[in-house]
């Protein structure tokens, strides 16, 4: 390994370590919240959702190396996918729960 590679190696290595550590911590936190029944019910659900989103971002950032410095195409694709997923999942849940209510 040349010196330059040693430098990028430490960078890359750090990235995986930070990512891994954060991921383990976030998961454990969410697990802890539920097992020890911290917070009232609704707030707890919100909290674990937020933790999940944070963890997803961590995975994207540290394992998949998607960030604002990525190639424009890659970032665009991820953002566009998020939009479509939001429309599909949000729409489906909205429609099905609305239907369910109407039938009550």
């Amino acid at each position: 390994m040349t010196d330059k590679h040693v430098e990028t190696y430490t960078q890359d290595f750090r990235s995986y370590c930070i990512g891994g550590l954060l991921a383990l911590i976030l998961t454990s936190l969410a697990f802890g919240l539920v097992v020890f029944e911290v917070l009232p019910n609704f707030e707890r659900l919100i909290a674990i959702s937020v933790l999940a989103v944070a963890q997803i971002i961590v995975h994207f950032r540290y394992f998949l190396h998607i960030s604002w410095h990525s190639h424009r195409d890659d970032l665009q694709l991820v953002l566009f996918t998020s939009l479509i997923l939001f429309l599909m999942v949000g729409g489906t849940i909205w429609i099905l729960f609305n239907l369910h209510e109407q039938m009550m």
Partner: peptide, 21 residues
């Protein structure tokens, strides 16, 4: 292309969801 993901329900207006939807 983007809007086409926001209209699918018009194929089942009569299915029974609320008027707002």
């Amino acid at each position: 292309a983007v809007l086409s993901f926001t209209v699918w329900l018009h194929h089942f207006f009569t299915m029974g969801q609320g008027a707002n939807v």
